[in-house]
Amino acid sequence: MKTAIQSAEVIVDIGGQPIRLCCGDPRFLDMVRQRYAGYVSSTSDAKFEFEIELAEPNGESRDEDVQVSWNSGQWHMARGDFRAQFNPAALRGRIRQTINPYSLDSVLRIVHTLLLARQGGFLVHASSAVRNGKAFLFAGISGAGKTTMARLAPADAKLLTDEISYVSFLQDRYIAIGTPFFGELSRVGENVSAPIACLYLLAKGDKNTIEDVSGVDAVRGLLENILFFAKEPELVTIVFEAACSFVKRVPVRRLTFVPDNRVWELIV
């Protein structure tokens, strides 16, 4: 049923999952449109909807760990700067935060990890780019070289993200999709997708080398980088299965590299 008072809204479509964000404050929605430029949808159809309530700033901290829990049919997400709920059955949620772009960004990352898990996909700490119709992922912890690989990408590569890669499982293959989730590069990824040709686990070294990683080491290397907020046993199992499935279908290699553009000559 429509409410008597319609709040303004913007639809952000990441990975083919359009989320309607409703808020009574047009300044905030303008900020959302700018922040997610390239991912704002003009469709009137959104599968999911979040009502955003803005609170007055009160010294909130974004340094705390995010807490995600499942209770009474809803996901509950909280950090110093926001509280949110998401009811997956109703496809609806609520966010309470101050006017800033970071809280919503965190909620969207969490929500997408939850949505993707059910579909065999995941978000992973990796930069990624599409070249010659193939997507390449470069995974690693902070400082491993994700942003460096993105920065060194040749001009004909389309950058999907320098920070958080969106991995979807579609028609028995893994696809990387652009995201607006950026890191040091502060650049929204291109909203394009391609089948994943390889996942590289990054390490910096004094020469460029590539070695195959398989089996347990590949799963472990991937799991270490998957964004994983909820601790519910069923979700842990699903993510584990997704990681095992991924390494069976996609080559995983360790890329030790010198940070200059010659490294991209090895990426084929």
Partner: peptide, 24 residues
């Protein structure tokens, strides 16, 4: 039952669904 297990080649990986810890 609070685990997920998968054989990969000659190895068996087990993930604790409680602690999210991976074992071989």
């Amino acid at each position: 039952t609070a685990i997920a297990a998968r054989a990969l080649g000659d190895e068996l990986m087990i993930m604790s669904a409680i602690s999210s810890t991976l074992f071989t």
